[in-house]
Design a protein around this nucleic acid. Structure first.
Lengths: 208, 208
DNA sequence: ACCTGAACACCGTTCAAGT
DNA sequence: ACCTGAACACCGTTCAAGT
């Protein structure tokens, strides 16, 4: 096979194909060989563009985080946090199989670091002591990552018999799956609302 | 090799070795071959006791969940939630590499289902409508799983140079790692406190 | 019933060779 | 510079054979 005039691959095409494969087959279902096959090349060709599979996945995750909105801290910090959390959760929930990669932290991923920087700056600018800004950033991330990854509703089986008899309070649990998306979204909104409400109370006390 | 008088393996020993291996090498580092070697047998021997690696991991996860305390709902639901969330987070954080397995949901794991049942019953018994009880259970699980898995503080590098210049508000981020445990624990307490405070406000409104 | 060696169909990654 | 085939050191799981 002669080397083609224009390269067969580039990093963008590899990322797009990897994301599609992870959405389709799950994180465990992604292999460099299958990904290469999707792109019409052999597996080792990928290593001309990405040094490892992990580096590729980190880059895919950073693409997704680019859609997260941290621009609402100017007016008030509660609104800034709410916009951040909602857009963060929406971005992650669109590709739930990739959430474990986000969980690894920003480390050296540029888009993720820019967001962490903006959130911290927004909170400190609103009067939160740096230590609290760190904790609030962490807390919100816990909520978003937990919500995006764990899909409470999808964690139950839809077979009634599994829960009947032994778990009296779970007699409706088999119905969770069919409304999973709605329940997960509503649960996240409830959690965010309660959390921000509690934070606002705390804010008054911390400023003195 | 003759078959020994007493079996070399049993499910309990396999689970204990698997948990130790996951704590040591991470979830990705666990292989049935290495696990078998740790136990002094060949890999296929494991399949006389567990049908698949996934089934083994689900069982290990269920062992861990057995330590979670859901017995505090009798007096008041806020205290019940707090005890549940704290003991849940502590149990998971003791084996953070295993959190993705917990994230898969209770499904058919007995200990996990008993806890889900008790939490739902406790909340409904305290006057929450079933729909809210579901959402509160989900919300709390988001917080716990997110906190146990993502370790906000460990997500940053401890090299100063990585963040300097480009991310002005992250100028202290390289210090996060050395206080990671404390920061993660405090952040979780802050989140739980704010969340419960907000829920208490909501409770008053929902009961009318 | 429980354990073994051999085998099947996979992995991520490296490397010398081709253009 | 980019892609290839071959190879290395692994995987989870199955299965016939042993006791």
């Amino acid at each position: 096979m002669p080397r083609p005039r224009t390269p067969l691959l580039d990093r963008g095409r590899i990322r797009a194909a990897a994301l599609a494969a992870v959405d389709r087959d799950g994180l465990a279902g992604l292999s460099m060989r299958r990904l290469a096959a999707d792109l019409g090349v052999q597996a080792p060709s990928l290593y001309s563009h990405y040094r490892t599979k992990d580096e590729l996945l980190a880059d895919v995750a950073d693409d997704i985080v680019s859609a997260v909105d941290v621009g609402d801290f100017a007016a008030d910090w509660v609104g800034g946090l709410r916009t951040w959390a909602r857009s963060y959760r929406a971005a992650l929930a669109a590709h739930p199989n990739l959430v474990p990669v986000h969980a690894a932290g920003p480390a050296r991923r540029a888009a993720a670091l820019e967001r962490a920087d903006a959130v911290h700056g927004g909170l400190v600018g609103a009067g939160w002591p740096p230590r609290y800004a760190t904790m609030i950033g962490a807390s919100t991330k816990y909520l978003v990552l937990g919500a995006a990854m764990s899909s409470f509703a999808r964690g139950f089986e839809d077979d009634v018999q599994v829960y009947l008899d032994r778990y009296p309070h779970l007699d409706q649990a088999h119905r969770l799956r069919e409304h999973a998306e709605e329940i997960d979204a509503d649960s996240f909104e409830l959690a965010l609302d309660a959390f921000l409400r509690g934070l606002a109370e705390l804010h008054a006390r911390v400023r003195v």
